[in-house]
């Protein structure tokens, strides 16, 4: 199994193992529960670190590789920690024809990462999605689980600016309260 998260301390690892154990409660030890379990664990941890996968394999009494095989087969599962905000650029047919690839370029340029990656400050993670079914609002980007319609390069800048302002306000409040 590849190292999914090299810079992690033993303490953090123990914590994700603990979280995984919590999430496993209530699931039967049948292999058919593997995907629902992975979904739940990812829902809690935000991604599937190595410790979580070995924990799950042990629980279901299956080889580690079976868990890893399923995790890497499905697009939904991620092996790296997510950012605070998630950006999912829709590349469905309608979005593509209305310039979704141009929107993706704009996100890549602004965040300086490729699809599937997280920014170094862990603020944003970005990925593509095959279609979110909002084809009438193309091109669509799902930002923090909210589908945004008609996201063109200028709107990308607008969304990022809104986050930046939000953060500035928060920082200011924090410095004032401290």
């Amino acid at each position: 199994m590849t190292q999914t998260d090299p810079g992690k301390t033993a303490e953090e690892k123990a914590q994700s193992r603990q979280e995984t154990k919590q999430a496993l409660k209530g699931f039967g030890r049948k292999k058919q529960n593997l995907i629902p379990i992975l979904q739940k664990v990812q829902g809690r941890l935000g991604y599937l670190p190595r410790e979580a996968m070995t924990e799950i394999a042990e629980y279901l009494n299956i080889p580690d590789i079976d868990v890893y095989g399923v995790v890497t087969f499905y697009n939904q599962f991620r092996l790296t920690p997510p950012g605070r905000h998630s950006v999912r650029v829709c590349l469905g047919t309608a979005c593509h024809m209305k310039g979704g690839y141009i929107t993706l370029d704009a996100w890549k340029r602004r965040l300086d990462i490729n699809p599937g990656e997280t920014t170094t400050d862990r603020e944003f993670d970005m990925d593509t999605v095959a279609c979110v079914g909002c084809c009438t609002k193309a091109p669509v980007t799902v930002v923090d689980n909210k589908p945004e319609g008609k996201v063109e390069p200028t709107r990308v800048d607008g969304i990022l600016l809104a986050f930046e302002q939000e953060r500035e306000v928060k920082d200011k409040e924090e410095s004032e309260s401290s």
Partner: peptide, 25 residues
């Protein structure tokens, strides 16, 4: 209710069955 995990091929019936069984689709 079973939630898929983002694999287009799982729309194919036999792949869907494999996915519900907890295997790669």
């Amino acid at each position: 209710l079973f939630q898929g995990s983002g694999a287009f091929v799982c729309g194919e019936a036999t792949a869907m069955a494999a996915s519900i069984e907890g295997k790669p689709g």
